[in-house]
Structure formats: structure tokens, C-alpha cells
Simulated scan of single mutants.
Amino acid sequence: MAGCALLMAGASAGASETALSGQEIYHLLRGNTASGLWQGTPYKSYFDPGGDTLYMPKSGEPAIGKWRINPDTDLYESWWEHVGWTSYTVVRTGSGHAWVHEGQNHAFTIEQGRQLSW
């Protein structure tokens, strides 16, 4: 997300994962918070229904970006000032969900609502 726009190295995506449709991604993220590890640092990212996203690392500076579902590709896209728009497949895994970019799987879980405090 911030700083890396979901580009950190991770484990490769597995065959048992199911790609979500754009509509499923929208309903999963809209008004909710994703939590995971980003470059080894725990993070939370809230997806405002208006298209903004607030990235909160456990340590470090928060960042504001944008998110959307691309209607032409049915993929999740995030925008950060230093990298612009970047596309990701979102998959359902056995333990939650993952962002998939360039063959790398970045696991996250969803918390209902805006859950940014540590």
C-alpha cells in the first residue's frame, strides 16, 4: 500500500485460491479495513466508500491514497502519489484473502468498519 502500493515480496499465489470478481472485491473492501504485513510491518488500511484509502502502519507515517475497481478489467486498483494506479487480483484463500501482483501473494484479513487503532 503506501510506500509500496502492494509491491512487497511475498509467497507465490497457490492453486487453491479463487479470484474475486470486481463486484465481490468492492463489497469486501467498501467501508472495511484490511490488515496484514507490509514489508514486515503490520498495517491496517481503511477503504472509504468514497474511494479514498487510509494506510496506517503500526510504526511509521500514515498515508492517504485512492482505490477503485476497474470496470474494464474487473481488478482492484490502488493509487499512491509516488506510483500512480496499480492493478491487483484479489483472491480468497483458505485463511482469508490476498492481493496478487506480479505472481506474488500478499495475505490480508478484513475487519468490519473503520478499525485503524492498534
Rank of each mutant, 00 (worst) to 15 (best):
G3L: 09
G3T: 06
C4M: 06
C4E: 12
A5E: 04
L6I: 08
G10K: 05
A13R: 12
S16G: 12
S16N: 15
T18L: 07
T18M: 07
A19Y: 04
S21P: 07
G22Q: 06
E24S: 14
E24V: 09
E24N: 11
L29G: 00
R30L: 02
G31K: 02
G31M: 01
Q39V: 12
G40S: 10
G40T: 09
P42Q: 14
Y43W: 06
K44C: 03
S45V: 14
Y46H: 03
D48F: 01
G50L: 11
G51T: 10
L54G: 01
M56E: 03
S59G: 05
G60S: 05
A63I: 04
A63T: 05
P71I: 09
D72T: 12
D72C: 06
D74F: 09
Y76W: 15
E77W: 11
S78N: 13
W80K: 00
H82L: 13
V83A: 13
W85S: 01
Y88T: 08
Y88W: 11
T89Q: 14
V91S: 00
V91M: 03
R92I: 08
T93C: 05
T93P: 03
S95W: 10
H101T: 08
G103H: 05
G103D: 08
G103S: 07
G103P: 02
G103T: 10
A107G: 07
F108G: 02
T109I: 15
I110G: 02
I110C: 04
E111I: 04
Q112W: 03
G113F: 00
W118K: 11
